[in-house]
Simulated scan of single mutants.
Amino acid sequence: EPPDDVVRDDAEHHAEDEPHAVLRGEQQPGERAEYKRYRKELEDMGPVNMLALGEYDDEKQRYDLLASQLEDLQDTRSTLLDMVEEYDNRSRTQFLETFNAINEKFKETFKEVFEQGGDAEIQLTNPDDPLESGVEIAVQMPGKRMRNIHLLSGGEKALTALTLIFAILKVKPSPFYLLDEVDAGLDESNVAKFKRMLMTYSKQAQFLVITHNKGTLIGADHYYGITMDSNEGYTKVLSVSLEQ
């Protein structure tokens, strides 16, 4: 049996070596397994790429450039969207102002043309989005209920459409109008109404009317006739001024 001092020396020796044993993974099985796991992870990573830092700097510069360009594009897009919204709001306001003004003049002119009564108005098919909306004409002929213009007779449609044209003339006058056989579907009484409108509004604008209706010709300032010369094979223009 060794002396007590030898046993004590061995204990002290092992106590001094214990930290080193833990660091080397020689005495702790759990830490040894963890050490092996970390070492395997390092091995799985493969060799270190010494050019990685340089490649990172290149990619970072490219990323910063693209990020800056993207930010510029987003700012430009935001500016354009704001401009579009501003123009849409302005267009919507101007459209509704003009639409309402024409609608009021349309009602007024309709009552002037149809002296027996009746009413008419233009309506938006989609009031929530007027810029993308269609426009319909609703008409109430004297003694009848309000209905869409498509349900009217041919003569009523033509005269109502002409009434709308003259209503637009009141809101946004034009110096010149060309009407091509717009009276073709009108009966004698409606031709008289059409002629009365022409006589009234011809003081504000010039009307060139193409017609085969004798009732429309009455009251015109000038006549221009187009005829074919069958012998010579070309057309001739004949003009007559009632002022002469």
Results as ranks from 00 to 15, higher is better:
N213A: 06
D5M: 06
I210F: 14
R77D: 13
M228Y: 15
Y234A: 06
H14W: 13
E115Y: 01
R90T: 10
A192M: 07
D9M: 06
R90I: 09
V237I: 15
Q61C: 00
Q28W: 09
K105H: 14
R77L: 13
M199D: 14
K214F: 02
L70S: 12
V7W: 13
G117Y: 08
A101D: 15
L124F: 08
I226H: 07
S153N: 09
I122M: 15
T163K: 09
V135R: 06
D10T: 01
R90L: 13
Q61V: 03
A192L: 13
L242E: 14
S78C: 10
A33D: 15
E115G: 00
A15Q: 14
Y223I: 10
A52G: 04
E108S: 11
D9F: 13
M45I: 05
E115D: 09
E59H: 07
R39W: 10
P173E: 12
L162I: 12
A21I: 00
E188I: 02
R77N: 15
P130V: 02
K203T: 10
R37Q: 15
L70W: 05
F114D: 05
A15C: 07
P47N: 12
R8H: 10
S174V: 03
Y234E: 14
P29A: 12
E26R: 08
M228G: 01
L42T: 04
D75E: 14
D187Y: 05
S230G: 06
Q140P: 01
L179Q: 06
A192H: 11
T79L: 12
T227W: 05
L73G: 01
E86W: 02
L151N: 12
E31I: 00
L178N: 04
Y38Q: 14
E26C: 00
L179W: 09
E156A: 02
D129R: 08
A158N: 06
F176K: 02
V113I: 14
T125H: 07
E243F: 01
K214I: 04
D44P: 00
F99V: 06
V240I: 09
L162S: 07
V171A: 10
P127I: 03
Y234V: 02
K236W: 09
T216C: 05
N126W: 05
M146A: 07
L186T: 03
E34M: 03
L152P: 09
L124C: 11
T125Q: 13
T163P: 08
F114P: 02
L179F: 15
D129G: 00
S68Y: 06
Q204T: 05
Q140S: 13
L159P: 07
Q28C: 06
A192F: 04
L81V: 10
K111Y: 01
T76L: 08
S241M: 04
R8L: 14
E26G: 03
L66K: 14
P130H: 04
T125Y: 06
S91M: 08
H13Q: 11
E12N: 09
F176R: 05
R37I: 08
R147D: 12
L70G: 09
Y201N: 07
E181T: 03
T200W: 02
D82N: 10
A205Y: 04
V191N: 15
T76P: 00
L42P: 01
Y234H: 14
V240N: 12
R90W: 10
P175H: 12
G143C: 02
P3D: 15
L217F: 03
F110H: 04
G215R: 11
A120C: 08
L80V: 12
G134C: 03
T235Q: 12
L242P: 04
L169G: 08
Q140A: 13
